[in-house]
């Protein structure tokens, strides 16, 4: 395999992806999906199992906004066999790295 190109300043790395859960709706998870750069963010919605599959496929670490935490955990308890994405680090930090 060829060497990956040296990272250019300011060019987003499309292999870096993040997910931030913003809410839930019934069995659906509402979340922001980011590729490479916070500017490149899109709001998405998926059923809970599809959401977990999506995070795994994209190797995207997930954080959960505090306001969505309780509802999100309820969804998770209902499908307890699937591992919960990483919680938001304690405190007010929303940094994903």
């Amino acid at each position: 395999m060829a060497e990956p190109p040296a990272e250019q300043p300011g060019v987003p790395d499309i292999n870096k992806r993040w997910v931030r859960v913003t809410g839930t709706h019934g069995d659906f998870v509402l979340f922001d999906f980011t590729i490479g750069d916070p500017d490149l963010t899109v709001e998405l919605i998926l059923p809970f199992p599809a959401f977990l599959e999506f995070c795994a496929t994209n190797h995207a670490p997930a954080t959960v906004e505090p306001a969505a935490q309780a509802a999100y955990e309820r969804l998770h308890r209902r499908s307890w066999t699937i591992p919960l994405p990483q919680r938001r680090p304690g405190g007010a930090s929303d940094r994903l790295l």
């Binding site: 999906f33 500017d39 490149l40 963010t41 899109v42 709001e43 998405l44 999506f54 496929t57």
Partner: peptide
């Protein structure tokens, strides 16, 4: 947009997701 972009993302079409960035913001 939300179901369309979600469908694109879930079906692995990251190219289409990129124009979602532009439109949604």
């Amino acid at each position: 947009f939300v179901p369309f972009m979600s469908g694109a993302a879930y079906n692995g079409d990251m190219a289409t997701v990129t124009f979602g960035f532009s439109a949604q913001s």
